[in-house]
Design a protein around this nucleic acid. Structure first.
Lengths: 64, 64
DNA sequence: ACATTATGCAATGTATATATTACATTTAGA
DNA sequence: TCTAAATGTAATATATACATTGCATAATGT
């Protein structure tokens, strides 16, 4: 997700404000330290012009 | 999501037990009454043999 | 009609996503 | 090197995902 955000030229704070969460929330998601809700994931995807699969599919565990 | 579950021949209870949540959780997600976590969405997708985009992308609001 | 299985739904409790505030650290530019 | 912007991180509070239990209703087969 960090790649997509940086590719969009947005800071954590800018992305956070566009999706109506705090900067900390974005930072913690990028750090893999928590587990965002589906609605937040969808908002992030729409803001970054990507899909769920591109940003969130098989990013944590590559197996299966 | 209900279509994919039914297509897999699983009941709510069977899917719930495979992804380690309760039947109620599956029922409420299918009813659109809450907003599952990303990890749960991913578990459901893997269990049903589909991807995030197929099951959860643009299912609630078609705009944008 | 009856039994059984699947699903809906409500009340209450717990875990955790997210907010808020604040400070520390890193990075980039002048 | 100095400054400012970007990011990391920690403490506490709140909202909500999810569990648990229990009962009601719908669907399906005999």
């Amino acid at each position: 997700m960090r790649m997509y955000r940086a590719g969009s030229g947005l800071t954590q704070e800018e992305l956070a404000s566009k999706v109506n969460v705090t900067r900390q929330t974005i930072g913690l998601i990028e750090a893999g330290k928590y587990n965002p809700s589906l609605n937040l994931c969808i908002s992030i995807c729409k803001t970054l012009g990507a899909t769920l699969n591109e940003i969130f599919w098989m990013e944590e565990d590559q197996d299966v």
